[in-house]
Protein backbone atom coordinates (compact mmCIF):
# COMPACT_ATOMS: atom_id res chain seq x y z
CA UNK A 1 0.00 0.00 0.00
CA UNK A 2 2.74 2.42 1.00
CA UNK A 3 4.41 1.93 -2.35
CA UNK A 4 1.31 3.16 -4.13
CA UNK A 5 1.39 6.42 -2.26
CA UNK A 6 5.01 6.94 -3.11
CA UNK A 7 4.40 6.49 -6.79
CA UNK A 8 3.84 9.33 -9.23
CA UNK A 9 0.33 10.58 -9.64
CA UNK A 10 -0.26 8.80 -12.92
CA UNK A 11 0.70 5.51 -11.34
CA UNK A 12 -1.74 6.36 -8.61
CA UNK A 13 -4.41 6.59 -11.25
CA UNK A 14 -3.28 3.26 -12.66
CA UNK A 15 -3.31 1.52 -9.32
CA UNK A 16 -6.50 3.14 -8.13
CA UNK A 17 -8.38 1.02 -10.64
CA UNK A 18 -7.08 -2.14 -8.97
CA UNK A 19 -3.87 -4.13 -9.26
CA UNK A 20 -4.93 -5.73 -12.54
CA UNK A 21 -4.69 -2.68 -14.72
CA UNK A 22 -2.55 -2.65 -17.84
CA UNK A 23 -1.15 0.78 -18.59
CA UNK A 24 -0.25 1.61 -22.19
CA UNK A 25 2.05 4.63 -22.26
CA UNK A 26 1.67 6.57 -25.52
CA UNK A 27 4.18 9.27 -26.47
CA UNK A 28 1.55 11.33 -28.31
CA UNK A 29 -1.33 13.63 -27.36
CA UNK A 30 -4.86 12.25 -27.46
CA UNK A 31 -6.49 12.47 -30.86
CA UNK A 32 -3.79 11.55 -33.34
CA UNK A 33 -3.39 8.34 -35.34
CA UNK A 34 -1.01 6.78 -32.78
CA UNK A 35 -3.37 7.52 -29.92
CA UNK A 36 -6.29 6.12 -31.88
CA UNK A 37 -4.33 2.89 -32.44
CA UNK A 38 -3.47 2.67 -28.74
CA UNK A 39 -7.11 3.08 -27.80
CA UNK A 40 -8.08 0.40 -30.33
CA UNK A 41 -5.72 -2.09 -28.64
CA UNK A 42 -6.75 -0.95 -25.17
CA UNK A 43 -10.41 -1.53 -25.97
CA UNK A 44 -9.80 -5.01 -27.39
CA UNK A 45 -7.44 -6.14 -24.64
CA UNK A 46 -10.07 -4.96 -22.20
CA UNK A 47 -12.72 -7.07 -23.95
CA UNK A 48 -10.59 -10.20 -24.11
CA UNK A 49 -9.23 -10.24 -20.57
CA UNK A 50 -10.28 -9.92 -16.97
CA UNK A 51 -8.25 -6.81 -16.35
CA UNK A 52 -8.81 -3.21 -17.31
CA UNK A 53 -6.60 -1.16 -19.60
CA UNK A 54 -5.78 2.53 -19.53
CA UNK A 55 -4.03 4.68 -22.12
CA UNK A 56 -1.57 7.10 -20.51
CA UNK A 57 -0.63 9.93 -22.90
CA UNK A 58 2.86 11.23 -22.19
CA UNK A 59 3.78 13.41 -25.16
CA UNK A 60 7.01 15.34 -25.24
CA UNK A 61 10.69 15.46 -26.10
CA UNK A 62 10.29 13.32 -29.23
CA UNK A 63 8.83 10.40 -27.33
CA UNK A 64 11.67 10.18 -24.81
CA UNK A 65 9.50 11.27 -21.86
CA UNK A 66 7.21 8.30 -22.43
CA UNK A 67 10.11 5.92 -23.06
CA UNK A 68 11.82 7.02 -19.85
CA UNK A 69 8.57 6.56 -17.94
CA UNK A 70 8.36 2.92 -19.06
CA UNK A 71 12.10 2.25 -18.68
CA UNK A 72 11.73 3.18 -15.01
CA UNK A 73 8.42 1.37 -14.43
CA UNK A 74 8.23 -1.88 -12.44
CA UNK A 75 8.92 -4.82 -14.77
CA UNK A 76 5.79 -6.57 -13.50
CA UNK A 77 4.11 -6.77 -16.88
CA UNK A 78 1.48 -4.12 -16.15
CA UNK A 79 3.13 -1.26 -18.05
CA UNK A 80 3.95 -1.24 -21.76
CA UNK A 81 5.19 1.45 -24.13
CA UNK A 82 3.74 2.11 -27.53
CA UNK A 83 7.02 2.72 -29.30
CA UNK A 84 8.19 3.89 -32.70
CA UNK A 85 11.56 4.66 -34.24
CA UNK A 86 12.21 8.21 -33.03
CA UNK A 87 12.94 7.69 -29.35
CA UNK A 88 14.16 4.07 -29.64
CA UNK A 89 16.26 3.61 -32.77
CA UNK A 90 17.11 7.17 -33.89
CA UNK A 91 17.57 9.31 -30.76
CA UNK A 92 20.40 7.17 -29.28
CA UNK A 93 22.57 8.07 -32.28
CA UNK A 94 22.03 11.77 -31.67
CA UNK A 95 21.99 12.60 -27.98
CA UNK A 96 22.34 11.30 -24.46
CA UNK A 97 19.14 9.76 -23.18
CA UNK A 98 18.12 9.00 -19.60
CA UNK A 99 17.38 5.41 -20.69
CA UNK A 100 19.22 2.86 -22.79
CA UNK A 101 17.01 1.76 -25.69
CA UNK A 102 19.07 -1.40 -26.16
CA UNK A 103 19.02 -2.77 -22.62
CA UNK A 104 16.09 -1.10 -20.81
CA UNK A 105 13.29 -2.63 -22.88
CA UNK A 106 11.99 -6.05 -23.82
CA UNK A 107 10.15 -6.24 -27.17
CA UNK A 108 6.56 -7.49 -26.91
CA UNK A 109 4.95 -7.27 -30.35
CA UNK A 110 5.03 -5.46 -33.67
CA UNK A 111 1.70 -4.08 -34.83
CA UNK A 112 2.04 -1.50 -37.61
CA UNK A 113 4.11 -0.01 -40.38
CA UNK A 114 3.39 3.40 -41.91
CA UNK A 115 5.81 3.47 -44.86
CA UNK A 116 7.38 6.60 -46.30
CA UNK A 117 6.87 7.85 -49.84
CA UNK A 118 8.64 10.31 -52.13
CA UNK A 119 5.95 12.73 -53.30
CA UNK A 120 5.71 15.58 -55.81
CA UNK A 121 2.81 17.82 -56.73
CA UNK A 122 0.64 16.74 -59.64
CA UNK A 123 2.07 19.12 -62.27
CA UNK A 124 5.70 18.53 -61.30
CA UNK A 125 8.27 17.99 -64.04
CA UNK A 126 9.54 14.98 -62.13
CA UNK A 127 7.92 11.90 -63.66
CA UNK A 128 10.14 9.32 -62.02
CA UNK A 129 12.91 8.98 -59.53
CA UNK A 130 15.43 9.08 -62.40
CA UNK A 131 14.28 12.64 -63.20
CA UNK A 132 14.98 13.63 -59.61
CA UNK A 133 18.45 12.07 -59.71
CA UNK A 134 19.26 13.76 -63.03
CA UNK A 135 18.15 17.16 -61.69
CA UNK A 136 20.16 16.70 -58.49
CA UNK A 137 23.24 15.70 -60.46
CA UNK A 138 22.93 18.81 -62.63
CA UNK A 139 22.50 21.08 -59.58
CA UNK A 140 24.06 19.46 -56.50
CA UNK A 141 22.29 20.59 -53.32
CA UNK A 142 19.83 22.66 -55.34
CA UNK A 143 16.94 20.22 -55.35
CA UNK A 144 15.09 20.50 -52.05
CA UNK A 145 12.92 18.00 -50.21
CA UNK A 146 10.56 18.77 -47.37
CA UNK A 147 10.59 16.53 -44.32
CA UNK A 148 8.33 16.30 -41.30
CA UNK A 149 11.13 17.38 -38.98
CA UNK A 150 14.85 17.44 -38.29
CA UNK A 151 16.07 13.86 -37.61
CA UNK A 152 12.58 12.48 -38.20
CA UNK A 153 12.26 9.22 -40.13
CA UNK A 154 11.17 11.40 -43.05
CA UNK A 155 14.42 13.43 -42.91
CA UNK A 156 16.58 10.31 -42.60
CA UNK A 157 14.76 8.48 -45.38
CA UNK A 158 15.54 11.41 -47.68
CA UNK A 159 19.18 11.22 -46.60
CA UNK A 160 19.15 7.47 -47.24
CA UNK A 161 17.82 8.06 -50.75
CA UNK A 162 20.49 10.69 -51.44
CA UNK A 163 23.23 8.38 -50.17
CA UNK A 164 21.99 5.40 -52.17
CA UNK A 165 21.69 7.41 -55.40
CA UNK A 166 24.93 9.28 -54.79
CA UNK A 167 23.27 12.69 -55.01
CA UNK A 168 23.11 15.79 -52.81
CA UNK A 169 19.61 16.99 -51.83
CA UNK A 170 18.72 20.10 -49.84
CA UNK A 171 16.82 19.22 -46.68
CA UNK A 172 13.99 21.59 -45.64
CA UNK A 173 12.48 20.55 -42.30
CA UNK A 174 8.87 21.34 -41.33
CA UNK A 175 6.96 20.76 -38.13
CA UNK A 176 4.93 17.73 -39.08
CA UNK A 177 3.38 16.72 -42.38
CA UNK A 178 0.65 19.37 -42.84
CA UNK A 179 2.80 22.53 -43.29
CA UNK A 180 5.24 20.64 -45.50
CA UNK A 181 2.42 19.39 -47.71
CA UNK A 182 1.05 22.93 -48.02
CA UNK A 183 4.42 24.09 -49.35
CA UNK A 184 4.72 21.05 -51.61
CA UNK A 185 1.35 21.84 -53.19
CA UNK A 186 2.15 25.56 -53.23
CA UNK A 187 5.28 24.89 -55.28
CA UNK A 188 7.70 26.13 -52.64
CA UNK A 189 9.51 22.77 -52.35
CA UNK A 190 9.59 20.33 -55.27
CA UNK A 191 9.80 17.08 -53.24
CA UNK A 192 8.59 15.72 -49.95
CA UNK A 193 9.34 12.55 -48.06
CA UNK A 194 6.23 11.77 -46.06
CA UNK A 195 4.17 8.84 -44.91
CA UNK A 196 1.77 7.13 -47.30
CA UNK A 197 -1.00 7.97 -44.86
CA UNK A 198 -0.42 11.72 -45.09
CA UNK A 199 -0.12 11.90 -48.90
CA UNK A 200 -2.93 9.46 -49.66
CA UNK A 201 -5.70 12.08 -49.68
CA UNK A 202 -3.80 14.44 -52.02
CA UNK A 203 -3.08 11.62 -54.45
CA UNK A 204 -6.77 10.75 -54.48
CA UNK A 205 -7.79 14.37 -55.10
CA UNK A 206 -5.25 14.62 -57.93
CA UNK A 207 -3.10 17.28 -56.26
CA UNK A 208 -0.01 15.13 -55.75
CA UNK A 209 1.78 12.12 -57.15
CA UNK A 210 4.02 9.56 -55.48
CA UNK A 211 7.27 8.63 -57.27
CA UNK A 212 8.25 5.74 -55.02
CA UNK A 213 7.41 4.03 -51.76
CA UNK A 214 10.09 3.00 -49.26
CA UNK A 215 8.44 -0.32 -48.58
CA UNK A 216 9.18 -3.84 -49.80
CA UNK A 217 5.77 -4.20 -51.47
CA UNK A 218 3.59 -1.78 -53.42
CA UNK A 219 0.87 -0.35 -51.25
CA UNK A 220 -2.77 -1.17 -51.92
CA UNK A 221 -3.79 2.50 -51.73
CA UNK A 222 -1.00 3.62 -54.09
CA UNK A 223 -1.28 1.18 -56.96
CA UNK A 224 1.26 1.30 -59.75
CA UNK A 225 3.84 3.19 -57.69
CA UNK A 226 7.20 1.39 -57.74
CA UNK A 227 9.02 0.41 -54.58
CA UNK A 228 12.23 2.33 -54.05
CA UNK A 229 14.32 -0.82 -54.48
CA UNK A 230 12.73 -1.53 -57.88
CA UNK A 231 13.00 2.10 -58.93
CA UNK A 232 16.70 2.34 -58.11
CA UNK A 233 17.47 -1.31 -58.69
CA UNK A 234 19.26 -1.39 -55.36
CA UNK A 235 18.93 -3.26 -52.08
CA UNK A 236 18.51 -2.37 -48.40
CA UNK A 237 16.50 0.77 -49.07
CA UNK A 238 13.33 -0.31 -47.30
CA UNK A 239 12.74 1.67 -44.16
CA UNK A 240 9.78 0.35 -42.23
CA UNK A 241 8.24 2.99 -40.00
CA UNK A 242 7.41 0.47 -37.36
CA UNK A 243 5.19 0.72 -34.31
CA UNK A 244 5.34 -1.85 -31.57
CA UNK A 245 4.90 -2.48 -27.88
CA UNK A 246 7.83 -2.65 -25.47
CA UNK A 247 7.89 -3.69 -21.82
CA UNK A 248 10.50 -2.71 -19.24
CA UNK A 249 13.49 -5.07 -19.33
CA UNK A 250 13.16 -7.79 -16.71
CA UNK A 251 9.45 -8.38 -17.29
CA UNK A 252 8.78 -12.14 -16.76
CA UNK A 253 8.95 -14.07 -20.05
CA UNK A 254 5.54 -15.75 -19.57
CA UNK A 255 3.92 -12.35 -19.17
CA UNK A 256 5.60 -11.04 -22.33
CA UNK A 257 4.43 -14.13 -24.24
CA UNK A 258 0.90 -13.64 -22.94
CA UNK A 259 0.80 -9.95 -23.97
CA UNK A 260 2.48 -10.71 -27.27
CA UNK A 261 -0.16 -13.34 -28.10
CA UNK A 262 -2.97 -10.93 -27.16
CA UNK A 263 -1.64 -8.11 -29.31
CA UNK A 264 -0.90 -10.31 -32.33
CA UNK A 265 -4.40 -11.81 -32.06
CA UNK A 266 -6.00 -8.37 -32.06
CA UNK A 267 -3.69 -7.21 -34.84
CA UNK A 268 -4.80 -10.11 -37.04
CA UNK A 269 -8.53 -9.40 -36.72
CA UNK A 270 -10.21 -8.25 -39.98
CA UNK A 271 -11.71 -5.27 -38.11
CA UNK A 272 -8.21 -4.12 -37.24
CA UNK A 273 -7.32 -4.21 -40.92
CA UNK A 274 -10.26 -1.89 -41.67
CA UNK A 275 -9.36 0.45 -38.84
CA UNK A 276 -5.78 0.66 -40.10
CA UNK A 277 -6.84 1.52 -43.62
CA UNK A 278 -8.72 4.56 -42.35
CA UNK A 279 -5.59 5.67 -40.47
CA UNK A 280 -3.21 5.00 -43.37
CA UNK A 281 -1.22 2.38 -41.51
CA UNK A 282 -0.19 -0.91 -43.04
CA UNK A 283 -0.99 -4.07 -41.24
CA UNK A 284 2.12 -5.82 -40.01
CA UNK A 285 1.72 -8.18 -37.11
CA UNK A 286 4.69 -9.80 -35.44
CA UNK A 287 5.73 -11.37 -32.18
CA UNK A 288 8.55 -10.25 -29.90
CA UNK A 289 11.23 -11.77 -32.14
CA UNK A 290 9.90 -10.04 -35.24
CA UNK A 291 9.89 -6.69 -33.41
CA UNK A 292 13.42 -7.26 -32.11
CA UNK A 293 14.63 -7.96 -35.65
CA UNK A 294 12.96 -4.82 -37.08
CA UNK A 295 14.39 -2.69 -34.27
CA UNK A 296 17.90 -4.08 -34.75
CA UNK A 297 17.84 -3.45 -38.46
CA UNK A 298 16.39 0.04 -37.91
CA UNK A 299 19.03 0.94 -35.32
CA UNK A 300 21.89 -0.12 -37.59
CA UNK A 301 20.48 1.54 -40.71
CA UNK A 302 19.78 4.94 -39.14
CA UNK A 303 23.12 4.89 -37.34
CA UNK A 304 24.88 4.48 -40.67
CA UNK A 305 22.75 7.14 -42.41
CA UNK A 306 23.25 9.66 -39.60
CA UNK A 307 27.00 9.09 -39.61
CA UNK A 308 27.35 9.25 -43.40
CA UNK A 309 25.26 12.43 -43.65
CA UNK A 310 26.95 14.04 -40.68
CA UNK A 311 23.59 14.84 -39.04
CA UNK A 312 23.77 16.35 -35.56
CA UNK A 313 21.14 17.34 -33.07
CA UNK A 314 23.04 18.98 -30.22
Amino acid sequence: MLRIFLCSSALLVANAAGADTLRIVVPFSPGGAQDTLARWYAQHIDERTEYSVIVDNRPGAGGSLAADEVAQADPDGWTILQASGGAITIAPHLRDLPYDPQSDFAPVALFADTPMTLAVRADSAFESIEDVIAAAEADPGGVAYASTGHTSVSHLTGALLAQAAGIDLMHVPYQGAAPGLADLLGGIVPLMVTSAASIDQMVESGDARVLAVFSPVSLSNLEGVPTIEDALDAENLNSPVWAGYLAPAGTPQERIDELSQLIVDICEMPETQERYLSLGATLVCGDADALAAVMDEDYTRWGAVIEAAGIEAE
Partner: peptide, 9 residues
Amino acid sequence: GTDVNSGVA
Protein backbone atom coordinates in the same frame (compact mmCIF):
# COMPACT_ATOMS: atom_id res chain seq x y z
CA GLY B 1 12.51 24.27 -27.11
CA THR B 2 13.74 22.27 -30.05
CA ASP B 3 14.76 24.33 -33.06
CA VAL B 4 12.95 23.15 -36.18
CA ASN B 5 15.89 23.71 -38.49
CA SER B 6 18.76 22.22 -36.55
CA GLY B 7 17.07 19.97 -34.02
CA VAL B 8 18.98 21.68 -31.21
CA ALA B 9 17.04 22.00 -27.96
